[in-house]
Design a protein around this nucleic acid. Structure first.
Lengths: 212, 212, 212, 212
DNA sequence: GATGAATGAGTATTCATTCAT
DNA sequence: TATGAATGAATACTCATTCAT
């Protein structure tokens, strides 16, 4: 008796999340309207408010699980002792790129720290927390690669590392090409960029050691 | 007489472009309304439609001259024989970053190739042309730096070079911090990233030469 | 068994009434939503419709008992033989003011005879009945004060007496000040107004007697 | 050429004001929607925003002229030297009642001091100013009637005087009876109430003088 | 060449209410 | 008896655009 209803409810919620996910991803958070989402989810736009307090809340409920998932994947890779640091770095970066291209909407959230209003910023904080953690994971692996402790230099290097990733993403995430094809096309350049950065870091490191 | 009228008309058009330019730059394309532009340009909002079919068209017509200006500046730098290639690269990159942060709206156009509807894609093509030229300038200077001819390897390197720039831009262009402050904060990391990339390119180059 | 069920049902109904009463009183009829009432009453919002056709009906069913209570209180005061008529009048007026400020919503109902749609005006009639009874009680006490029989002159006087009360209420019932504070501030003026009215009535009475 | 357009514009503005006036008066500010007003005014709801920044602004632009008019009428009456103070008081009170019953919407504004948000309270302040001036006019005339200087006692008396007026208004302003009929019915009671209040004030004044 | 008037489509959100269970 | 799911209508307000002049 109850189960039928609650099943339906869950279906609706999923439909909404999936619709919102697709739309946000393809058109961007701001451009998508609640009515549009509702139409795509085959329900009334008021129904959305039954499940999500807000457009923003909807976006965040949409983001958190997949970001968490990404983080876990990354951590798993990091913990594989058999792997070389550079391979780990390559792989987690790959995961990151994959993820972002598959979740174009989230990627924007992920990068935009912007406009954090003071009041009721709880959900934003959670996301921010995740961002920092993911950033931290990559920074640590980069540290391993370069045998660098967690200092300012490592911080500067990982920022540059991230710029590279973001640059790739922001260049390609608006393309309408199917993600998998896109990735295939991207990967060689992307791997090359990793190698170049790492050797760049290494020479810069040597240089700065010599100076001291 | 005709000339007087057409002169006035030119003036109005310029006023609109200038107003739109300022507003788009400071507040972003989406946030600015046609009425706002009209007010700033000291004309009626309907007048805008006399000169520009669309808000979008206005944006595109607006982008062209300023991108052209940027291109010219870059070319001028390139032609200074006195300068070392690496310094040229640093300076034109600096120009580019400056320009993009000062024209946040254009930056998005510049990067987004997106959503090309079939009809009336002419202006988009023009912009694309400029993009390619600017990209080409940087590629050439990078070629000079690395003593590389215009081959696939240089292409790959310059893509990576661009990713770095885009990454910086996409990370910071949504921040509401005043541009000048932002730049001051950014420049050290930015210059560091250039050095790292260049030495990265160089080692990678050596490596690939050794392989052959 | 039936009794157990109907008992529970009674309880729910009471809970709803009590919740609605509190909320209407503190926030006003329009501002309170059915869901809010349901939450406060610990039931689903649909349950409310089991007992009350309408939000409006709920309000009316809610008004009756508390108005009845007010009436009973007033009657009790009237029947205290020890008290002087003027003191009785003062006290019942006080009760009335208290009640109305504490039930801002009911106060509006109480005063508004308005918009009587033809269908289903029964509850409104009941309220009207009560209004008249309360009005009648005050009129009678006023009659005692002035030693006037129940004639047209007394009717006119009591209308004026009521205007004074309504005037106070309509002036202050929209203020957001906490009721008790408000009352404290109001009472001196209110008591003064009673004295003035009564002596006004008395002189007017003398005057009209002289004329005859 | 211009005149035809500007004529049309003025017509539209008038239509909106008139529609809003009627609707606010009959149903109350909160209950009336912008779309409703637009329909009544035979224009699109967006057109309203061409002429009035806000629903609130619309209300205020609607109120100011008629309140100002009321004030002027009152002042004119006050300045008639031939009239006895009591007659002046009677007449300006009459004007006030007339006005309020004819502008049921404004009357509510006039009485409700409520919810003055800090930001952009300019229009409210103007109204408040007028309220105080009108109140002040009546207070002064009352002072003349009672030969009282402008002291606390006069203040208390005029408050009571106002309660009486408000009481009448709040009792009858929701009735759907046509205003003129209503007034005819009301006037005798209203005049009686004035007489009673004045003689009440006088005896109370004597009483308080004796005490000293 | 230029503009004021006007509008339809759109925004997020809230609410009282109904329906199926 | 009771309830979760669902919805249509409504809210104030904004915007790019068009039409008549």
């Amino acid at each position: 008796m109850n189960s039928k209803q609650s099943h339906r409810s869950e279906e609706t919620k999923k439909a909404i999340l999936s619709a919102a996910g697709k739309l946000f991803a393809s058109k961007g958070y701001d451009t998508v309207s609640m009515r549009e989402i509702a139409k795509q989810a085959n329900c009334s736009h008021t129904t959305i408010y039954l499940y999500f307090k807000d457009k923003e809340t909807l976006l965040h409920q949409l983001s958190m699980p997949s970001l968490t998932h990404l983080k876990q994947k990354m951590q798993a890779i990091v913990q594989l002792d058999a792997k070389m640091p550079e391979d780990k770095l390559k792989e987690i970066s790959n995961q990151f790129i994959h993820f972002c291209l598959n979740n174009k909407n989230l990627y924007t959230i992920f990068i935009n720290v912007k406009s954090t209003r003071i009041d009721e910023q709880k959900p934003k904080l959670e996301i921010n927390q995740l961002r920092l953690e993911i950033f931290s994971i990559m920074k640590n692996v980069l540290g391993e690669c370069l045998s660098l402790p967690n200092n300012d230099q490592l911080l500067a290097y990982s920022r540059i590392f991230f710029y590279n990733l973001y640059g790739i993403l922001s260049t390609y995430s608006y393309q309408h090409e199917p993600t998998e094809e896109l990735l295939e096309r991207l990967i060689p350049t992307f791997e090359l960029s990793l190698e170049i950065l790492i050797s760049g870091f290494k020479s810069n490191l040597k240089l700065s050691e010599e100076k001291q």
